[in-house]
Write a protein that binds this DNA or RNA. Structure first.
Lengths: 325, 325
DNA sequence: TCGCTTCGATTAAACGATTAACCAACTTGA
DNA sequence: TCAAGTTGGTTAATCGTTTAATCGAAGCGA
């Protein structure tokens, strides 16, 4: 079907080894012959067989990506960045969903290795204990997670949020998270509480423990801002407040985390913190590749985040025009 | 490292061919020996090398999935279903993002084939002309797209939406789409307009041509419902209406399409149409596998959709009960 | 008993690339 | 001039599996 090394070799009257060397630039081939071989290769439309190469070298050129839940709006953006980083290096991305239990995750890891992944990039489930897999692994979670490879600076993100709210005049903040078992969320909350200035008060509410108070009770308690640990939490909050007749941000401000695709589209736009996903993906991939070359795993890294200020914390003219026609 | 056929063969005093036959059940091996070989294989933790198998058989056990934009909230759910369907068959999923031009898409297709994908599942960009790739391909787009393999019944979905709105008493509907160049969206709009009863009027607005009128102008024009061709459009609309002080659905109803993860979480919940993604993924994969076995490609299929009624079209909360007893 | 089929297993040839080892022909230096 | 190194290539083994071809032994009908 496709031309192979042998076809080129025969056409040029040389051995397959010479062709292989010429194309890879590894052995000793005269520059002139090298060029001619390369020309012939492109002329024939030669494409090396990844299967054969993989069998011989033990490298498949594919890395596995394991996500807790592909459908969860937080991960596709990361997957996209990982795919882009891999593509830039000529690598493929085998995807797996560890939906369900940690056991399912372990299975997924095994499966990717069996399918020939050279290394793994994993966004682990909570409390994951990595089994020995025989291939390099990079973990993307939170700085406080043992074994973490690279992640966004979630604490800094929390601090940026609180600082921004302080500058906007807020003094009493309700911090809303989903689960205190999530390292990422606890890091973000820690960043927020640490950044509270002396004249500010913040209360932390975990939704898995207690529901959100009724919107008007929030106002009665003196809260002027809701700081969620995720856009996934903030967007429903925003609509809930609006549905109750409150004006955001005039009555109460809202912030999120992660800069979900919707966050820029809703009205008012959601103030949030954006991770540098391309940098994180690059870092994770670099770690895997370094380990593949028998280098020691690079030390854990933390990537700075960026505050995105939008309408839920700043009253723009437009919003006011719309609300007061 | 890992045990190979030869290791088992040596341990049992037979040839590797016999071991291969015993494990695959293909050649002629006595039942007794078969059992013993299989026991020994599991005892040693034997895992066949996919690379070697792929080289010999020409099948890698991996299928490629090409999405227009991984980060677009519509596709992760589909990716998850495809991954699940593939996993159930012991297949891997190589993912690629055709972000950018149709050329980028063509590149992505080529890349997946080179990386050894046995077949491809593609959600094509608009106006895609499939190049001959040498591997089976299944396309997931719209029933009206030439070459489409399988898709949701978008027309039916449109009809369900309009019928539901009619039963709720709506007579004047604004249908809001993004781009009239999208087959999926035009199919949905067609389903809606066809389902309009004689006493109903519907106007179609493409956001790429003209912006949404100011919320209060919509009311002034007599519209009582906004039917979007996507939750991606509907959710921003919902917040825009709420931000303008309108009550949904009391002042105006809103519907979407696709049942995005957020649609159930916002307040009020978004009435929408859910595709049977698992069925679509299964169908696409089946088509690819059938073609791989040299069967003709099965005829195009259309999968029924389901209407999900939520708060944006039904007033279920107490305040509404009070006002509309 | 002779031919013929069937059973159970072996042999050996692929699949397509990489790479260590080898080799002939030239350079070079002393 | 001769030993030693350099240059530019070739040979052949190897990665681990599948599978067509082969083969001895056993079973069987005539």
């Amino acid at each position: 079907m496709n031309p192979k090394l042998e076809d080129i070799a025969r056409a040029m009257g040389v051995s397959t080894a010479t062709v292989s060397n010429a194309l890879s630039g590894k052995g000793r081939v005269s520059e002139a012959l090298k060029d001619r071989i390369r020309q012939e290769a492109t002329r024939l439309g030669y494409v090396p067989s990844v299967q054969a190469r993989a069998l011989r070298t033990g490298r498949s050129g594919v890395i596995g990506l394991v996500l807790p839940d592909i459908a969860n709006p937080l991960f596709p953006a990361l997957a996209q960045s990982v795919e882009a980083a891999a593509q830039a290096r000529g690598l493929g991305v085998l995807i797996a969903d560890s939906r369900g239990t940690r056991e399912a995750q372990a299975q997924a890891l095994q499966r990717l290795v069996r399918q020939g992944a050279d290394g793994l990039v994993v966004v682990p489930r909570r409390g994951t204990q990595m089994p020995p897999l025989g291939v390099p692994v990079a973990m993307i979670d939170a700085a406080s997670t043992p074994g973490n490879t690279i992640c966004a600076d979630h604490r800094q993100g929390g601090a940026l949020i609180v600082e921004h709210l302080r500058l906007r005049g807020h003094r009493k903040i309700l911090i809303v998270g989903q689960s205190s078992a999530s390292r990422v969320q606890t890091d973000r909350v820690a960043g927020m509480t640490e950044a509270l200035s002396g004249d500010m008060t913040g209360r932390v509410l975990w939704l898995e423990d207690a529901p959100l108070p009724a919107p008007y009770d929030l106002l009665a308690d003196g809260f002027t801002a809701l700081a969620a640990t995720s856009d996934l939490i903030a967007l429903p909050l925003l609509t809930r407040l609006q549905a109750a007749g409150l004006r955001v941000p005039r009555d109460i401000a809202v912030t999120g985390f992660d800069n979900h695709a919707f966050s820029a589209l809703v009205a008012p736009g959601l103030t949030t913190v954006a991770q540098d996903l391309p940098a994180i993906a690059e870092g994770a991939l670099e770690s895997v590749l370094a380990q593949l070359d028998a280098h020691p795993a690079p030390p854990p890294r933390t990537v700075p985040v960026e505050l995105l200020v939008r309408g839920t914390t700043t009253s723009t003219n437009q919003t006011d025009k719309e609300t007061c026609p």
